[in-house]
Amino acid sequence: MPQVSMTVNGKPASGNVEGRTLLSSFLRDTMGLTGTHVGCDTSQCGACVVHVDGDAVKACTMFALEAEGAEVATIEGQAAPDGTLNAIQAAFQEHHGLQCGFCTPGMVMSAAALLKDNPKPSEAEIRDYLEGNLCRCTGYHNIVKAIMAASGQNVGAIAAE
């Protein structure tokens, strides 16, 4: 079996994989990082979003061997080593941006990718960016609110839809 090596959350990670091994399987099964959720497994839902070399991608729709040499970031690397949540995670908690939590790792990783390129997105820009992240619980409203708050914007103005 071929070997793959990459950096995951700043640490070297390698393992033997098959050609057909998905990045999501490598992260979950080989690395034990089960925070990357697999919802649809068909690139529709975004629960599996991670960053590869800084870009948000669906880990269920990329082969592990395609990440050879890449810097991969997952939800497990978002909080500080002592467990202190980062600004986006803290805002999700503060504004009830999750209920069952299944979509949340993907939502947080997508939000992080958005804020990297667009530090103060409008409500419409946030909703547009999250087009590929589905949530069955929240109705999205509090997710949008949390991302507004995480980017230091006033959330009072967002109307409930």
Partner: peptide, 9 residues
């Protein structure tokens, strides 16, 4: 096209 993660790949 699609969504941001689809466009990145």
């Amino acid at each position: 096209i699609g969504d941001p993660a689809v466009r990145n790949r």
